[in-house]
Design a protein around this nucleic acid. Sequence first.
DNA 1: TTAATTCTTGATCGGATGGTCAAGTCCGGT
DNA 2: ACCGGACTTGACCATCCGATCAAGAATTAA
Lengths: 207, 207
Amino acid sequence: MSGTGGTPRTTRIQALNKELILNAALEVFSSYGFRGATVDQIATKCGLSKPNLLYYFRRKEDIYVAVLEHTLQDWLDPLRSLDPAGEPLEEITRYIRSKIRMSRENPKASRLFANEILHGAPAITDYLKGPLKLLVDEKAAVIRRWSAEGRLRPIEPHHLIFAIWATTQHYADFDVQVHALIGTPPDLMDTAEAALTSLFVEGLRPR
Amino acid sequence: MSGTGGTPRTTRIQALNKELILNAALEVFSSYGFRGATVDQIATKCGLSKPNLLYYFRRKEDIYVAVLEHTLQDWLDPLRSLDPAGEPLEEITRYIRSKIRMSRENPKASRLFANEILHGAPAITDYLKGPLKLLVDEKAAVIRRWSAEGRLRPIEPHHLIFAIWATTQHYADFDVQVHALIGTPPDLMDTAEAALTSLFVEGLRPR
DNA sequence: TTAATTCTTGATCGGATGGTCAAGTCCGGT
DNA sequence: ACCGGACTTGACCATCCGATCAAGAATTAA
């Protein structure tokens, strides 16, 4: 019995195929954007037929939203783990390192968000103004306290957070430009990490 | 006579309408990207008919490329004016200021490029690997010399340039997110400028 | 095995959109 | 005024693409 309450059971095949679809969708959407991507592309990439995709997700937009939400979860973990009880400069260094690592390991997720926000974030405005703002304001307060205690050079915390986001995600979002300008040295991201951490640490170290 | 050499004369109406089209196209392409924009949207925005647009630009892509090139010209002026003979920290401060001003005054141009590069820069790879790389390498050499002379904390110049681009353009490209997180205070960009200049100057000032 | 349910897809529809064309209107030079 | 070229556009075409549906295949529960 599939539940008198009407709860649709999740079958083995469902879980498998939804996973397949979301993986393929991340690749396609991150490369071409929502409008630029086609359901057929995603279907081909994961070896399913187009009508089959639309059996699991009724509309193209549903796939897109699902990918966004699926990816949003871990995207903010690094910021969440910024420890108010830690040493300010160490915490910020650690934060930059994890953001750089995410840019290297999951550039597609970065580009997916970049594209979404660039186009006005129609699918995630609620998220931006809700959970994200809450988290950011909370961490901004921590940074502000560090500054007040003289453990960090005074800086407007939100702008510091923006600066860290911008610089680290730049290597994922604009990697075509980066590679056009400095090629593809094997230690590119290590050099980037070193440059950014030193820049921020020295820029933030109290006199 | 319109020239025996076949040189097509540019009439008054041509100049006027091409200008109209390019202005409308910048708005539309920067909002929706190449795929997302429609010729009809551009036509409506500038009060011309769709076939009329395609009389001046044969294909949609021609409009897009024309807008890109038209905008690329002034986009790099600030970097060009980085003066090797100037005081390093002053020059970099001035550069950040002009980049911030461009983000405020012409965010559409910034978003147009961001979108283009995000999607692999199919229309401007030659430009990136050619003229842009030349300019950037030249200025990187200047920065490297400043560091060697002890007038700047040692830093990998290309990554410094990336960091300045990323942080300043962030306010144009991701302004939806910025406003979702800190609202729209009238002095937003002034505060941003202050935060960024202090961060970079202190991060780069030699010990 | 059997029957119900879930899964899969070829065929197709309908709207959107880039691009064409023929027929007309406007403008500038003489 | 007149003429040739520049400009403008309504109607149209071809294609792409999201979405639907009916019919059949596979899976599961009994």
